[in-house]
């Protein structure tokens, strides 16, 4: 899907993550991560981010992640919300099990 507009999901509260997505036409994925848990979970956060972007078939975007120690399922949800907003698409609830 195409990132049509900048979009944000999440807050800077502790245990949350703020995900911002910006259009990046023709330039691929540029993921920037700031996290208080980077040493132990940085790789895991990036892996989740790439997985969610792949689910939305987003190939061109600048993604900024400011993580305040969110659990993986929070990160996943914030990413999904931001992707829906950025691509102006509705979330596919049937896709979840």
């Amino acid at each position: 899907m195409i990132v049509k507009q900048p979009a944000v999901a999440g807050t800077l509260e502790s245990s949350d993550i703020q995900v911002s997505i910006f259009p990046n036409p023709g330039n691929g994925l540029d993921i920037q991560l700031q996290s208080i848990a980077k040493a132990q979970f940085g790789d895991s956060i990036l892996e989740t981010t790439r997985a969610v972007l792949a689910e939305f078939e987003i190939t061109d975007a600048v993604v900024s992640l400011v993580d305040k120690g969110a659990f993986d399922w929070v990160i996943r949800s914030r990413l999904q919300a931001a992707c829906c907003r950025a691509t102006e698409s509705k979330f596919n609830w049937k896709g979840e099990d």
């Binding site: 132990q40 979970f41 790789d43 895991s44």
Partner: peptide, 10 residues
């Protein structure tokens, strides 16, 4: 189960 397995600090 909540956090995932932490990567060792390098």
């Amino acid at each position: 189960s909540m956090t995932g397995v932490p990567k060792p600090i390098e």
